[in-house]
Amino acid sequence: MSRSGLIISAAFCALALLAPWLAPYHPKADTDVPLAAPSARHLLGTDDVGRDILSQVISGSRISILVGLIAGLAAAALGLLVGLLAGYLGGAVDRILMRTVDVFLAMPRLPLLILLAAYLGAGIWVVVICFVLVSWAMPARVVRAQVRVEKQRPYVTSARLSGARSIYVLRKHIVPALSPLALAIVIMEISHAIMIEAGMSFLGLGDPTATSWGTILHHAFSYPALFLSDAWIWWALPPGVCLSLLLLGLALLAMEVERKVDPRIEGGRLGG
């Protein structure tokens, strides 16, 4: 189990990188009659406009992972920075930043995303910006708490008392101590970003021109007769399974990293 997170995540990254060579067709090409059942030509059949579903699922990994990486990294970076500043500087800066965090944590996340997407229109960058806006606060709070713990450690205190500059203390003692936690945060944020991108696409608020797993699910579930036949098995299930598997892989990976940080906090602090 300990390696499975890494293996799953790596496998999907490989799939995304190799997508153009692995996918039998271009994901947007209308290759056959609509709603064809699986066959040798189309292993997962075709969707309602005759596009090859397997190719869409394979190419979909690219959008999901790309959006996840960009948005997740950006949100984690912002959160880390804020948490570091607030935790290390303390005082008024800390109070202002943490109240801002409180405001953002109290904003209901999905309704906020729906509003922002409605305002900015749908597009990959919109998803990224929206995600960063609503997702930096949680890691900021976690990091701040950890920084405060680190700050109290005897060797940090003594370094500060002996006149070391803040930058030095941060770089030498605090950041290294934080890095496993930071890694866990980055992974969790990436996985949240992937989940949010899929969710927004499912609601029709993502970038509908980009073939992501969420978009495939959106089209499948808005097809009225989906459940009147077996089409859901090869149309809705594969993108759903891929999405779930990748998210599971990332969650396991994050848990593994977190366990290395501190067995006491495993899975807990970043959960949800």
Partner: peptide, 25 residues
Amino acid sequence: DKTLVSSLMGVRAMPAYLVGMLAIL
């Protein structure tokens, strides 16, 4: 323990709308 951890995490990794649709089906 291992089964519980991985299966519950697996459930959480599935988006609510997907679980919901499958449950309805």
